[in-house]
């Protein structure tokens, strides 16, 4: 395909760069062109923004011990991959 565009999968891979404004202008344009017609990726982006907003307000004391242990287990597992 000769049309320059992002797929949904590619968009998911670079969403952090978009949210942190670390994406080159040409790629930002492709990113937003994809969002213009893809409501699934719009929802995904909204979920990411909401997650960042909510987790940005959490302190360690806000977590239950079970939630804290669960998160640590996920992180340890991820680091071992």
């Amino acid at each position: 395909m000769s049309v320059p565009e992002l797929t949904c999968k590619e968009l998911v891979e670079v969403v952090t760069d978009y949210l942190e404004a670390r994406m080159p202008a040409e790629q930002r344009l492709l990113f937003e062109e994809h969002l213009a017609f893809c409501d699934w990726c719009q929802s995904y982006l909204q979920q990411m923004r909401a997650t960042i907003h909510l987790t940005g307000t959490l302190r360690e004391d806000d977590l239950t011990p079970e939630a804290r242990d669960g998160l640590l287990e996920v992180f340890r597992d991820w680091r071992h991959r």
């Binding site: 404004a21 202008a25 930002r28 344009l29 990113f31 937003e32």
Partner: peptide, 9 residues
């Protein structure tokens, strides 16, 4: 805008 114009940013 609070920042100088820049495409999509």
């Amino acid at each position: 805008s609070a920042a100088p114009p820049e495409l999509c940013r």
